[in-house]
Amino acid sequence: MSPLSRRAALRLGAAAAATACLGARDTFAFGDASKVDCVEINMPGGSISRPEAWSRLLFEIEQTTSIETVSRVPRIAPEDPALFEHPFAALVGDGELKPLSDAAIEQLRRYLTYGGFLLIDDATGLKRSAFDDSVRKLIGRLFPTRSLFPLPSDHAIFRSFFLINRPVGRVALFDHVEAVSLGEITPLVYFRNDLSGALSRGADGRGTYPCTPGGENQRREAVKLAVNLVMYALTSNYKQDQAHVAELMKEGRL
């Protein structure tokens, strides 16, 4: 074995220090209980499970932002009270959702009213689908007096971490995101470009599904949007505070 050169030793030391720094925070943590995770809602009918997509998203958040995450993606029925332990929830589907019981609807409504966040992701990649119809019926039952509306381009979701110009997923059929707002808060987002499809990756680290028509650049934009959604779920309209708007405008980024 050749002796370690001075430069090699310095590089090794720097790498060790960097590794220590990167990993140091985990040793401080309270534990996984207080970290951010994602729960999948298991609805009867056409809901599907893509835990690898949300795990990938949580990893990306951990790498990119200061949010502490844990790769935990439980799958919970809407009437399960355990839903309230996970304020960020996702519902992915590609088929018609069967109607929920009144108790499940009431619980979902209470979840969203008291601070939970629900991302509904249309995995069909189609402009018209049975899933879309059933989602609109579901939202009609959840919020009879409020309707889905396209989020304006200056909504905090599009600037909560990244500046998003066009919301895309595995596909890019729709240039907008629909949502339901309660006052200044938007607790329910309905995305129809198959976000989880863009996030899903196989064991080899490659995307499970090809993104069309933009390829990997589109996937990258989809990841950025997904990060923004989680960031919005945690910070709500923080990025619409005057301090941020003024500063971003001053720097020419808005």
Binding site: I67, P87, F161, S236
Partner: peptide, 30 residues
């Protein structure tokens, strides 16, 4: 120092109180 569920709910409480003029700064990236 880090967005979290705890920070989310405290901000919601503070923002929804009309008697509070809230200035928030969350460290989103270190």
């Amino acid at each position: 120092g880090s967005p979290s569920f705890d920070q989310k709910f405290l901000r919601l409480f503070l923002k929804q109180d009309p008697a509070v003029d809230l200035v928030s700064f969350f460290i989103l990236r270190t």
